[in-house]
Nucleic acid binder design. Sequence first.
DNA 1: CTGTACATTCAAAACGTTTTGAACGCAGGG
DNA 2: CCCTGCGTTCAAAACGTTTTGAATGTACAG
Lengths: 178, 178
Amino acid sequence: MHESLIAVNDSTVAGLGRLARFFGFSDVMGRLYGTLLLSPTPLSLDDLASRLKISKGSVSMNMRALERWGMAKEVWMRGERKKYYMAESDLWQVIRNVLASRERREVQLALQVLSESIEKLQSAEDELTKEEKELSRFYLERMADLQAFFQVAQMALETVLGGDDTLDFEAITKMELG
Amino acid sequence: MHESLIAVNDSTVAGLGRLARFFGFSDVMGRLYGTLLLSPTPLSLDDLASRLKISKGSVSMNMRALERWGMAKEVWMRGERKKYYMAESDLWQVIRNVLASRERREVQLALQVLSESIEKLQSAEDELTKEEKELSRFYLERMADLQAFFQVAQMALETVLGGDDTLDFEAITKMELG
DNA sequence: CTGTACATTCAAAACGTTTTGAACGCAGGG
DNA sequence: CCCTGCGTTCAAAACGTTTTGAATGTACAG
């Protein structure tokens, strides 16, 4: 195999490991995804284990995680008893899966906790001493700021998730960037 | 101190710990930030250590990290020898600091590596066998997809960072959300 | 100059996460 | 049936990160 192909493969796999870490996944998940993304043919668990030089057990567990996140799909090869996988190569689809099933929950939970906090402070107002009331008003300001922050996050999320008109990769690639 | 104030403080501090983790910081940094955010007065290292029940050493190191990220500021209290800190309470400012000094670099690095990969493949074309050429073309497609992805990320980043008209918290808080 | 009250540093310990590999389970072929 | 080849599981080990606290540094008051 030519050196350039190996080098490109290596840096891409490493880069996707980084990216995975950034998104809160394990390095291995990213590297497995990268390996599949750069393989024209589906790969078996053993293929993946030997390419990345990691144990079969780790590949098995991490591939199931990738499947759950919609980043890889199992492929049935006729006449084969092995499991084969390929990457979900539509990156926007991957992003949407992650955002929809993980970040959305996080944001909603945060907003819920904030609402409850605000209610709690408001309904406790009568029982507070003068000093406590002052602190309570201060807290309410901060809660409002945090609420605003998460509401912007929620709007941004829903924008990315809601737009069913797929972003055009080709167009973006060819754009002139300052 | 009234139970409601304590409960709200606890859940907010915990929540900001979560948020910090999400952004790749340590839990302690988030909790320190939260504690400061909910304090009407600046706090000393000892105050923070005793409120969060962690060692002073940890507070010292994590507070310096918070300072570097522009999430907290030192405050000089006249007649005091202690260091006092307060939170940077403009959350957008905090986000911008983080995005500008960390994520921007990441995205630029990724784009650079991708460009180099593409060049490498193109300039090696003559030396490739027929099969290698096929793989190389496949790689180039994937590289283009990744480039498009990071370019969108870059645009999104610059949009958030570039807009010097500050987002209006008040307006957002009062919005009707479906 | 000395003592005091703080902040900082860093090596060791605690803790959490990831990886491994051996044991196990399971299906299909002979 | 039993054997073979595969996937899965999980306890133990390796590894990485965070926390601690004692040692050290520093500045100021007296």
